[in-house]
Design a protein around this nucleic acid. Structure first.
Ligand SMILES: [Mn+2]
Ligand SMILES: [Mn+2]
Ligand SMILES: [Zn+2]
Ligand SMILES: [Zn+2]
Lengths: 138, 138
DNA sequence: TTTAAATTTATAACGATTCTAAAGTAGAGT
DNA sequence: ACTCTACTTTAGAATCGTTATAAATTTAAA
């Protein structure tokens, strides 16, 4: 439909051919107001719902890995058998709801400034990730 | 040898029978001055070096899961195909060296106080984990 | 010593992810 | 529009960390 040409450009500009599979995945991931978190399985289910011609699991993995590579997605550090991705690639932190197994964004106002005072020679900081695990109180 | 009775007590007091496999793993994990981080594979290799009669991989997994359950070990939240454990069960944070694939403790002096200002109704905080990924600078 | 429950073990099963290699497609050059 | 080649998709196999199974062994209570 409408926004396809935007995604076609986005893909082209990063050296990825705008295939119909990639465009569909782009629309699902990026054609919305709010960012969100997902696993490959979530994505696979969502795709099955919105399209008749199925996209193979290998392609979903290939595409998500390519998007992560290009910086369109972020992988969240969390110990789970599944990998969690985030369409919000800005620096931010997370609650992880252990009951729902879902990530919730913490924005800058939600967390005091994090200061790393230690440094190691020959090493530089690549990322700072805070994960706050939460669960039902009762 | 010497400290066995301490570990035997520790195991008994937590409802775990003090088998020779568990005692060997206890000695390897806890009979030392400094705490450390390890994966099951690390531990398996270490065990093979210090003992002639091999401990099956299933027993290693069972034992580590039991120790985690009892609070003798902590699992670190990190996105890796392997699970990382910590014999330091106190609250502390980590550097993760992406080149060496190894965790390095950050103590309280190394990180400014972390303040979580957001809370969700019906939910309580279970843990706060900061992971600072580092890599070679050049 | 007897006996039930806990533990160990080898091996199978599982599940997320990656690999393979064959078939299909996109786009540059003509 | 046609050709050609590199890129992409795909089904299915392979990988690998972890968990499940079920039989043999060990622990420890009675
Ligand atoms: Mn992990
Ligand atoms: Mn993970
Ligand atoms: Zn997020
Ligand atoms: Zn640690």
């Amino acid at each position: 439909m409408s926004n396809n040409h935007i995604f076609i450009e986005k893909l082209r500009s990063s050296g990825l051919r705008p295939t119909k599979q990639r465009i569909k995945i782009c629309k699902l991931l990026f054609d919305r107001k709010d960012t969100f978190h997902f696993t490959i399985n979530d994505l696979s289910d969502s795709l099955r719902k919105i399209t008749l011609d199925k996209i193979s699991l290998a392609t979903i993995y290939n595409t998500i890995n390519a998007f992560k590579e290009k910086g369109y997605l972020k992988e969240i550090s969390i110990n789970s058998n599944k990998t969690y991705f985030d369409t919000n690639v800005s620096n931010h932190h997370h609650f992880f709801d252990e009951n729902k197994k879902e990530l919730i964004d913490l924005n800058d106002n939600d967390v005091g400034k994090i200061k790393i005072k230690k440094s190691l020679p020959g090493k530089k900081i690549k990322s700072i990730e805070l994960l706050v695990k939460i669960a039902n109180s009762n």
